[in-house]
Design a protein around this nucleic acid. Structure first.
Lengths: 187, 187
DNA sequence: CTGGACATGTAAATCGTTACATGATTCA
DNA sequence: TGAATCATGTAACGATTTACATGTCCAG
């Protein structure tokens, strides 16, 4: 059980959504979360093997429509609890893909847990924005004289604009999640 | 001369802005670009050593105000040309930090080269947005029935919102750079 | 005289990519 | 028969982190 190996939890998460072969997992990741997360064969196959060793998953060999044998992996109870543990463990907010993967697998947890996660992400990014604004104050476009200061300002602006986009996304997602949460109490 | 080792070019880039010790470089990176790029001692010191070996940099030992010896590294002509080569080489648009580092060191190149770079980044992200919109079309909030589909939608929204922020940033920066470019022709 | 900041470094482990090998099946 | 896709896998390498060792100097 690795500590922060995201690829490991990504595979486990995919298997929590259904049973797939290594090949299918790769395709699914490329298609559905490929824009923020990537994985290579050099990781997938050894990891699946290790998961079976550790009783986190099992496999059966199936013959597909093309008459080709595939190892179809299925998550086991132990695997699911390891995944849940990760989903509820502290999140490294500085790299987006850990958060995005956790949200992508969010259906495993109850809605309120996901709201908390996005809420924390939002708070973190709001603090970032405050820090950037503080730097930006001593850093006004009209007062810049040296060329390197312009470029340094550009990366700061990137930080500001992207962090604000993170906050906007968080607000939108929190609203929807609250709505889902309310409806689940009604129904 | 590594091919895609970003850390290497980050150090070289810092040295293009001034002469620093390994310790100073780390502090400077943490302070100025720390929110999008990180580097550890385990990378800095061996790399600086190798740079000296390869005649990309040199160092002198100086005693600072605290009477402590420091190795102050200085970029050499060969180092500067290797850096310029990287700055003008194709950029991996999928991870932001390569672009941001290149922009941060942008003052080394002429303004038009930087405009081109941001322009390419913008075009790339606009294509991303189109691709996300295509997926979003078959994926309407009001029609979602299953919980996993909500979460899958959330990561897609993240992609859309952040990519749009990238485009907004690009537009802002391109405008300023065009302004700088114009002024440099006038003056 | 001790803790903390300064300063340089290394070894080991981990994480991830690249490039390949292997073999089945299908279709032209 | 040969190319293309499906499918599983590994070896080597490269990048990065972690955890440590070492030593100086200064302030309390």
């Amino acid at each position: 059980m690795p500590k922060k190996n995201i690829s490991f939890y990504a595979l486990l998460g995919i298997l929590s959504l259904g049973s797939y072969s290594g090949y299918d997992i790769k395709k699914k990741i490329e298609k559905e979360v490929g824009y923020f997360y990537k994985v290579s064969n050099g990781q997938i196959y050894p990891m699946l093997k290790k998961m079976v060793c550790d009783n986190l998953a099992s496999f059966v060999i199936e013959r597909n429509e093309d008459n080709i044998n595939k190892k179809i992996y299925r998550i086991e109870d132990k695997g699911l609890s390891v995944l849940k543990e990760w989903l509820t463990s502290p999140t490294e907010m500085e790299s987006d893909n850990e958060l995005l993967l956790k949200i992508y697998f969010g259906s495993i947890l109850d809605v309120r847990k996901n709201i908390d996660l996005v809420e924390k992400f939002k708070d973190y990014k709001k603090k970032n924005i405050e820090a950037y604004n503080e730097i930006a104050r001593h850093f006004n476009l009209s007062t810049i004289k040296e060329l390197p200061d312009y470029y340094s300002y550009f990366t700061l602006r990137f930080g500001q604009i992207v962090a604000q986009a993170y906050v906007d996304w968080s607000n939108e997602i929190i609203d929807i999640l609250n709505d889902i949460d309310k409806r689940s109490f009604q129904g």
